[in-house]
């Protein structure tokens, strides 16, 4: 094919235009997926501003549900908001914080121990550690259910917390491990040589190094715990203990969803959104400052 300069220029322009088209298409694909992902959430938020009991039924704008949620009382209908909503919210948070704390302590100690093991032992324990992560929630739940029945332990708050520690700790181990590999292995011994007790060496020398890993393990544990349904379902027993997940499940099976759940989750979502924006904004600012210093 014979090419004159003008046709080459045309070709370049054509290619550039097709690249732009491609970029726009790629972008719109992402936004399309996000639209699908966010549609139900937008629906929850929109319908938190109407007071209809039935989800999906618009009966005019009002912040009544928010008022109900905070006062626990529906002024118009003159009924109390289902107290189990608050109980389950409380227990969701309690279980998450307690389980995540235990998981972080247990997992951090375990990570230090595993890191100092010989290859063979380390492999074996890492395999055990991966089981709760691979196991689907229903199997973790049922296996623990059988254990508690077998041991004659009545199911309730304690068993749920134990169960949550089971599936949270592996993630703490995995978050702390990379920090250990980055750490100078000799500083612990150095602290001991300089007269620190093992506990002091742990607290004053190792903790500051491991802290970021522990924190991300803790946050991940909280997230996993709050989001869990399957494990809680099988380990909570029939004593009336509920987390938000099991409360919603029971509610949905009864047919009607407690309307105050809509404002509650709208608020949770917006809080997370704001937190995320702040974190991103700070990270961007720090990156900018770092670049400016250079």
């Amino acid at each position: 094919m014979k090419q004159t300069p003008t046709s080459a220029q045309l070709e370049a322009r054509r290619r550039e235009r097709s690249l732009t088209v491609k970029r726009v298409l790629a972008q719109s694909y992402l936004w399309f997926l996000l639209l699908l992902l966010y549609a139900p959430i937008v629906l929850i938020i929109v319908f938190s501003f109407t007071k209809s009991k039935v989800f999906g039924n618009w009966t005019g704008f009002t912040v009544q549900l928010y008022e109900n949620l905070f006062t626990g009382y529906d002024r118009v209908a003159q009924v109390h908001v289902d107290p189990n909503l608050y109980h389950s919210l409380f227990y969701t948070l309690l279980i998450a914080v307690v389980a995540a704390t235990f998981a972080t302590l247990l997992g951090t100690l375990a990570a230090i121990g595993i890191y100092n093991m010989r290859q063979k032992q380390r492999k074996a324990i890492q395999f055990l550690n991966s089981i709760p992560m691979i196991n689907p929630d229903i199997l973790t739940g049922i296996s623990l259910f059988l254990l508690f029945v077998f041991l004659g332990i009545s199911r309730g708050l304690t068993t749920v917390i134990i169960a949550h520690v089971v599936f949270c700790t592996p993630y703490v181990v995995l978050s702390v491990m990379p920090r250990l590999t980055k750490m100078n292995p000799n500083i612990y011994e150095a602290a001991l040589d300089l007269g620190a007790t093992p506990f002091q060496a742990l607290r004053k020398v190792m903790m500051p190094e491991l802290w970021p890993g522990m924190l991300s393990g803790f946050i991940l544990s909280i997230t996993l715990s709050i989001d869990d349904f399957g494990v809680t379902f099988f380990t909570k027993g029939s004593g009336g203990l509920d987390t938000l997940s099991t409360f919603i499940y029971a509610d949905a099976r009864k047919g009607g969803l407690t309307p105050e759940l809509r404002p509650l989750f709208s608020l949770i979502f917006l809080t997370m959104l704001v937190l995320l924006i702040i974190i991103n904004w700070r990270a961007a600012r720090q990156a900018k400052q770092g670049a400016a210093k250079k």
Binding site: L109, G113, I114, Y115, I125, L128, L144, V166
Partner: peptide, 21 residues
């Protein structure tokens, strides 16, 4: 002092609440 032992509580925990179930 041998930090290997620090994993023991977790190993015990895993055996009781993961393997046994």
């Amino acid at each position: 002092n041998s930090r290997r032992t620090w994993a023991w509580p977790y190993v015990l925990f895993l055996v009781l609440f993961v393997v046994l179930p």
